[in-house]
Design a protein around this nucleic acid. Sequence first.
DNA 1: AAGACGTGGCA
DNA 2: TTGCCAAGTCT
Length: 288
Amino acid sequence: MDIATPLGEWFNREGRDLPWRRPGFGAWGILVSEVMLQQTPVARVIPRLAEWLARWPTPADLASAPPGDAVRAWDRLGYPRRALRLHAAATAITEEHGGVVPRDLDALLALPGIGEYTARAVAAFAFGDRHPVVDTNVRRVLARAIAGQGEPGPPSTRRDLAAMESVLPENLDAARLTNAAVMELGAVICTARSPRCDACPISDVCRWRAAGYPPYKGTRATVQPRFEGSDRHVRGLIMAELRASEIPVTATEIARVWADDAQRDRALQSLIADGLAEPTQDGFTLPA
DNA sequence: AAGACGTGGCA
DNA sequence: TTGCCAAGTCT
């Protein structure tokens, strides 16, 4: 069953005009966008990405800045360790790859913060190479359209890559288009909560639809723990203070963000361990 | 190999 | 209001 052709036609007609899809956006821009998009919605990424690339147009530009600048520019995208890793990746690209984003999958995979998904996304979208690209959208679309299940089971890199490989055309351009189209379908049509099957270009061949939308029976992924009152919450509050100040934030000021001394200290210590905060003479700052 | 890791929008 | 979810990675 060929789903690549109808998906490609649909994508060419209705795919969103996103910055990183514009011709000539560049491998560095695509790499930065992919890292920002890890667990963060498109709408929140777009303005931050534009600022980031205007300020640091090349990996060497970012590498020459203090990591704390990257963390501050990251703003509230969330998971600020990504900013630190992106800075470290820029350093590695500058020092080990002559300042040029590598094209090879293994070289990409070796960069900090670049995992199985992002490495393939960069190789496929920035360089046009033929690799199956599998993210949460792709998993969901393939689970439904091909496997006839309402939700993907637990991620299995091997199985997931094989599944995507099986729908990928041989032709390079067609393969790249298919990768983008399956992701896009999962993002805007075949969504997690309320899929818009009426607007789906492959509804006529979807096995889940054909089976009458059977409810998912497998094991569910572990539920996200409550955020309110969690260590993540406290880390976030402390990071907001550090981002907002150009001078060291005192222990007294940090004490105001969270009353529980033990939990606050645990959060601060973990931020220091992560390299997101640095103790100084007068308090704490983003990494210099 | 589960669990940690931010943040905010939406139903 | 609470819970789910958003182009994952790392340990």
